[in-house]
């Protein structure tokens, strides 16, 4: 019985010693890190830390570009809207619609142009308000619509 116990103790000591050496090897410091590795890790860390700042600047630039695009879009829309407004018959004729040159556009301008259309006199090219190459009733209508515009045509 004592002999068995001694054998077991010896075996236990052997295993414990091997385990201790293994654990020691596992957790002991792995020696000094080479300088090249240190520098590489440092560089990588700096790059990683600097990148978000660049990223932030890019976002700022993208935001500024978006704002500029919005402003540009607004300008284009306003110009387009203004252009569409001018396409309206009432808006096409403004100063040229002042047929009698009295400084205001009213129904008498349309009437006078209509009379000229029906009369024998020559028609002036400046009365072609819709620029379709001829002076006709459509131009008279333009003058009349300019006279009744609510936004200041008259």
């Amino acid at each position: 019985m004592n002999k068995d116990n001694e054998q077991l103790d010896a075996l236990e000591n052997k295993v414990a010693k091997a385990l201790g050496e293994d654990l020691k090897a596992l957790f002991s410091p792995a020696g000094r890190t080479p300088d090249e590795v240190d520098r590489a890790v440092l560089d990588a860390t700096r790059k990683r830390l600097v990148r978000p700042r660049r990223h932030r600047w890019r976002l700022v630039r993208a935001g500024a570009a978006a704002m500029a695009a919005v402003v540009l879009l607004a300008v284009v829309l306003n110009v387009t809207r203004d252009h569409v407004g001018r396409m309206h018959p009432a808006a096409t004729a403004t100063a040229p619609a002042d047929i009698d040159h009295n400084g205001r556009i009213d129904i008498l301008d349309a009437y006078k142009l209509a009379r000229r259309l029906e009369g024998p006199g020559a028609l002036e090219a400046r009365w072609d308000l819709n620029a379709d190459g001829q002076v006709d009733r459509a131009d008279v209508d333009l003058v009349a619509f300019a006279a009744v515009r609510l936004d200041g045509g008259a």
Binding site: I107, Y111, A114, V148, R149
Partner: peptide, 20 residues
């Protein structure tokens, strides 16, 4: 008569007409 269609459903209108 001539008038601005924008006047409809509003409270201001300019109306005009002529005849030859």
């Amino acid at each position: 008569a001539y008038y601005d269609p924008a006047a409809l459903m509003n409270n201001r209108i300019i109306i005009a007409a002529f005849s030859t």
